[in-house]
């Protein structure tokens, strides 16, 4: 069985589902929060008129309250896909629906955590967290309180008045996460948020994120390069192909219970191996591509 076959099957399955069930009419138990329908994005590259296809024919739906992780070779279009969901760029083809409505631009119903800590350097930790609340026109006093609450939540009590350059990388990322949580978006889009952290910090932030997710019931799309991280965090793992990125396979991660050391579970290893195998060919293809282009 070839890669293309798998891919086509996945796509057909997704498409039929979208077409047969209209989330607005008959509400299934867990309706789709985000529907990505045949989405493609083409960039124009300066100096050439050859179009650059970043992602193509992406079909994926993310259920309400789901934690979905997304893996794929470097340059396959993961960040591009996240930007599209965020409404920061418009798809060239296809459409993206959130709660059944087409995305037309960014909004406070979605919060993004960027891979590089995109904190405002002239604002303190607290003021950074308040940023989204200001955009939402929350009154000053409530803003303060909420910002403090989320700062506590990510374990940074006492660092209110530090500027980003006075925080460590892990702390900055936690402030960025708190900022996205503070304005209470339904959807959290996270682009390799823990990639630049050491193993210990990463693990504790993973725990924290899971805890927050369980408590708040947000829908999370989480990009990562780490297969372990994808399996550990995700209820489902979406694997992308090399560029132009498509969804190659979506794998359900089902553990009997999340108690104890999940990583020691034999099924963890099995999932890990499955994803690794899926990715191996794609990474090789991506590297080949980069060689021929660059």
């Amino acid at each position: 069985m070839t890669v293309t076959q798998t891919q086509t099957q996945t796509q057909t399955r997704n498409r039929t589902r979208i077409r047969t069930e209209n989330p607005a009419q008959d509400r299934p138990e867990r309706q789709a929060k985000i529907v990505i329908r045949d989405v493609g994005k083409v960039f124009r590259i300066r100096g050439t008129d050859r179009p650059f296809i970043a992602v193509d024919g992406i079909d994926l739906d993310v259920r309400d309250g789901e934690f979905l992780t997304l893996v794929g070779p470097s340059g396959c279009g993961k960040s591009t896909l996240l930007d599209l969901i965020a409404g920061l760029t418009a798809p060239t083809t296809g459409e993206i629906l959130i709660d059944g409505e087409a995305v037309t631009g960014p909004g406070l119903d979605r919060g993004i955590v960027f891979q590089q800590y995109a904190l405002f350097p002239w604002r303190t930790a607290l003021a950074n967290i308040e940023f989204g609340l200001e955009a939402k026109a929350v009154p000053r006093k409530e803003r303060r309180e909420r910002a403090r609450h989320y700062l506590d939540l990510v374990g940074l009590t006492g660092f209110e008045h530090r500027y980003p350059h006075e925080l460590s990388g892990g702390m900055r990322q936690r402030v960025a996460i708190a900022r996205s949580l503070a304005f209470d978006p339904d959807v959290l889009l996270m682009d390799e948020p823990f990639a630049a952290l050491d193993a210990q910090t990463r693990e504790s932030l993973q725990e924290e994120l899971l805890r927050i997710w369980e408590k708040t019931n947000k829908t999370i799309v989480f990009i990562t390069h780490g297969i372990d991280e994808a399996v550990y965090l995700g209820q489902r793992v979406a694997v992308m192909t090399s560029r132009p990125g498509r969804i190659k396979r979506v794998i359900d991660i089902a553990f009997e219970s999340r108690e104890g050391d999940l990583r020691a579970d034999p099924r963890f290893g099995a999932y890990r191996h499955e994803i690794w195998t899926l990715l191996r060919d794609e990474v090789a293809a991506a590297q080949e591509q980069e060689r021929t282009i660059g």
Partner: peptide, 12 residues
């Protein structure tokens, strides 16, 4: 640009 992007993502 990332800061602009980040602010835009919050619907400014």
């Amino acid at each position: 640009p990332l800061l602009v992007k980040s602010a835009r993502s919050m619907g400014l």
